[in-house]
Design a protein around this nucleic acid. Sequence first.
DNA 1: CTTCTTACA
DNA 2: TGTAAGAA
Length: 117
Amino acid sequence: MAEKELRRNMAVLPIGTVRKLTDLTDRQIRYYEAQGLITPARTASNQRMYSLNDIDRLLEIKDYLLVGDSIANIKRIYAKQAQHESDNISAHQARQALQSEFLNLVGFKVNQNRKGL
DNA sequence: CTTCTTACA
DNA sequence: TGTAAGAA
């Protein structure tokens, strides 16, 4: 389930492809980046490389703009979204820590004493 | 040929 | 946002 996200985040598309896929101009795509709405990767030759998630975000941005939302507003939306993301990660880490403690308490040895299985 | 940056009659 | 110029 995490491998799929990893692939979605792989930057493999040049701006030309993104332009065709989103119907946005290069100018707009670069402008939104300048505004911090997207952060495409860069190749060794400084070429921007976009991921499938970048495409989705650009399409989303286009919709927000169409409905009349401002760049500043969209920026805040993604800022809070990132906040919730990190909150979820913390919750996940907390759960793992608790499970780890639990296993030790009960006496299980993960990755140890596997011969009996 | 495609993309990058910078600048503006 | 568009577009031109020069470099990469």
